[in-house]
């Protein structure tokens, strides 16, 4: 027993008890959100390069506004202030990236309010929202201020020495093809040397960020691949039937909000289906709606609408794609569905 005195026994008065498992992969919501922010960084840099420093201002205003509005609403709702999880910053950044560089700042703030307030907090905050908040904000602004939302500047190479590129109004490639005019060349589209919303134009930067997210297992590869693939397929078939610039699949895939939407907005965890099968259905649905709006709708662009419509269908998709648990017979599962 003399040995016992030298052995240190643990102090059991401060132990924690909790349910198993006691291990965790140490992932957390802030980690996810800040990884998404990091993945968006290349696109942000590209946008500053092509549009000038005002792009950074618009993005920052949206982010700050989203965080502030979330904090304010949490306070009003007497909840724990949840801006630490970073989701408001992601929403703000995504919203800012879908706005034109010339957007007035009040519009950014209104958009942020709609995105966070009506898109997220009214449903009880992160996890409860049926629609992607950034898409909600963008669509609301598109309906409320259509002219400000569709004023595009002409882009021509590096604009790092400018506050904002020359405010000569240009058209986006999608507007061009909607009028059946040929769009810009492949490299301009791929690198983002085109008119459009702040964060939408540089395909290369968006793909880099998206692949990073897929590698980090933040998003499912099925959504961007099937989304973009569907758009490519439908426009490709249309192009084969009638080869006019309006149906050029390359322009459709590389321009507009498709890359941003497919990699960053459709993949929003809260509003996309839970399992892989559902994700495929969701992505194909997004692709079809986008193409239909682009080719036959009155808007040149339909990403946000497509995502919102499929968001609304997500619970239904979840319900019908939910697999049978291990060892549950097919019949029993259907009976209970």
């Amino acid at each position: 027993m003399s040995e016992q005195s030298t052995i240190r026994m643990p102090d059991t008065s401060k132990l924690v008890v909790s349910s198993s498992p006691h291990y965790h992969d140490m992932g957390s919501i802030p980690k996810i959100m800040f990884t998404v922010l990091a993945a968006l960084a290349p696109a942000v840099i590209a946008s500053i390069y092509f549009f000038g420093w005002r792009a950074l201002l618009v993005l920052s205003v949206c982010m700050v506004a989203c965080a502030a509005i979330e904090a304010l609403l949490c306070r009003l709702m007497r909840r724990r202030i949840s801006i630490g999880d970073g989701s408001a910053l992601v929403t703000g950044l995504l919203l800012g990236m879908t706005l034109p560089v010339t957007s007035p700042l009040w519009m950014c703030i209104v958009g942020s309010f709609i995105a966070i307030g009506l898109g997220k907090m009214v449903y009880g905050g992160l996890g409860g929202n049926p629609f992607n908040p950034a898409s909600v904000g963008r669509v609301a602004l598109l309906l409320a201020c259509p002219s400000a939302m569709t004023t595009w500047v002409t882009v021509s190479g590096c604009a790092l020495n400018k506050w904002v590129v020359d405010a000569t109004t240009g058209a986006t490639p999608l507007e061009l093809v909607a009028q059946n005019q040929p769009g810009p060349g492949f490299w301009d589209l791929f690198l983002g040397n085109i008119g459009g919303s702040i964060g939408e134009t540089c395909t290369l930067a968006l793909i880099v960020g998206g692949v990073f997210l897929i590698v980090r297992k933040i998003i499912r590869w099925q959504i961007p691949v099937f989304f973009i693939g569907t758009v490519f397929l439908i426009t490709g078939i249309a192009y084969m039937v009638s080869p006019c610039p309006k149906f050029n699949p390359m322009t459709h895939v590389l321009s507009g909000g498709l890359m941003l939407g497919a990699f960053f907005m459709a993949t929003d965890m809260v509003t996309s289906p839970l399992n892989r099968k559902g994700a495929v259905v969701f992505a194909i649905g997004c692709g079809i709606i986008t193409t239909v709006i682009r080719l036959w709708g009155s808007y040149p662009e339909g990403i946000s609408y497509a995502i919102l419509i499929m968001n609304a269908l997500t619970p239904l998709i979840d319900r019908y794609t939910a697999g049978r648990p291990f060892g549950v017979a097919r019949k029993a599962s259907q009976k209970n569905a």
């Binding site: 643990p10 132990l15 198993s20």
Partner: peptide, 24 residues
């Protein structure tokens, strides 16, 4: 040999399915 530092959890079983206890 006892402990080097105070543990925060004592688990009967493994970390995934074991039960956490508060007494030795």
């Amino acid at each position: 040999g006892g402990v080097k530092e105070d543990p925060l959890k004592i688990i009967s079983g493994g970390p995934m399915m074991g039960m956490s206890v508060y007494s030795l």
